[in-house]
Simulated scan of single mutants.
Amino acid sequence: MSNRNNLANKTAARERIRAERERQKKKEKLRRQLTAAGAVIGVLAVAGGIGYAVMKANEPKGWEAAKEAKLVTPAHTQGKNGTEILIGDKNAKQTLEVFEDVRCPACAAFEQSSGKVLAKDIEDGRYRVRFTMYAFIDDVGGGEGSKNALSALGAALNVSPEAFLKYKSALYSAKYHPDEREDLYAKDAELLKVASEVPELKNDKAFATAVKKGTYDRWAMDMTALFGRKGIKRTPSFMHGDKKLVMPQVPQQQMTQAQYNQLAQANFKKMIDKEFGPAKGSGKPDPGKGIREGEKDPTGGR
């Protein structure tokens, strides 16, 4: 009886040991499976994180992102995406087109010598002016000043056409206009400093906010996309209808700045008188040719 009990006890003990080993094996197998699954999840998480980081890194930034931003057009604009800046008496029968780039030194020279003449012609209703603003100097020379200044000009135009003209004049002034190699207008603080010279903008908080937030950045990008419109790729350039106007050159000789400005202004007046006829009050008839008021797009499109 004792021997049978011992044998039964040993058999039972072996079964318990075997069962325990099987349980441990299953437990170890489950542990390995869970570890492997966790590793896979970790890898996927890391891969997902890397993928997200790559996606974010590849997202457009700065002015590239501005191309896709919501379009906000300034007041006092017309045409597709608000890219027609037409300033002057609505009853004026003719339109002069002016092509400029804010960083352009030749544009600054034109504004400093002849800007007041242009402004007076607009005020007198001699013609309206359509301004087409480029930013090719940013592309050629590097930088963001032309685009940033154009966005700020959009904020000024939203205030009034007068604010736009005065601000543009201040940006081109001898006091503020930087060397084209210096991207000073890429800084909002510099643009706001120049704006402090313009009474309509000096204490305008909405204008300052629009400059800082880049409210009109997308609009500026749409404006610069007009580069090459009517074949114009140099600034400043002038057109009347489909005719490109040619301004006489100032002689290459030693002279003071005042002498240069006087000659340049005389050449601008000569070009305008030849195309549009004598200014009001000269006693000579106005030929009356040019772009008529009422056309949907006074320049025939882009």
Rank of each mutant, 00 (worst) to 15 (best):
E200P: 06
G79C: 04
G48N: 08
T77F: 07
V250C: 08
T73Y: 01
S173I: 02
K116A: 15
K29L: 13
S237G: 11
S173W: 06
K61C: 01
E15D: 12
V40G: 11
D188K: 05
K270P: 05
F276T: 10
K147N: 06
K147D: 02
M133K: 04
A170C: 03
D204L: 08
R31V: 00
F268E: 13
Y134I: 11
E84L: 15
Q252E: 10
T35A: 12
P285C: 04
F110D: 00
A206K: 14
E97D: 14
L71T: 01
G277A: 12
L226M: 08
F110A: 09
Y185S: 05
E28P: 01
K205V: 10
R14P: 04
A108R: 06
G49K: 08
Q262D: 14
P285E: 08
A106D: 08
G42A: 15
E68M: 11
L263A: 09
G228M: 04
A69E: 04
Q265L: 12
P287A: 04
A37V: 09
A65M: 09
A69Y: 03
D139K: 14
L263S: 02
T35E: 13
S146I: 04
G294H: 01
F99G: 08
R31I: 01
L263T: 14
E97M: 15
D179C: 05
K296V: 14
D242L: 02
S2Q: 14
N5A: 15
G49S: 11
G49W: 11
E180T: 15
M247D: 07
F276W: 06
A13Y: 05
G79T: 13
D179W: 06
L118N: 08
S196I: 00
G228C: 04
R126V: 04
D188T: 05
A206S: 15
D222V: 13
R292M: 06
Y127W: 14
T299L: 14
V102R: 04
F268Y: 15
G82C: 12
Y176Q: 01
F227N: 13
C107L: 02
R292S: 13
A220N: 07
G214P: 10
D183M: 11
I122Y: 05
A119T: 11
R31K: 10
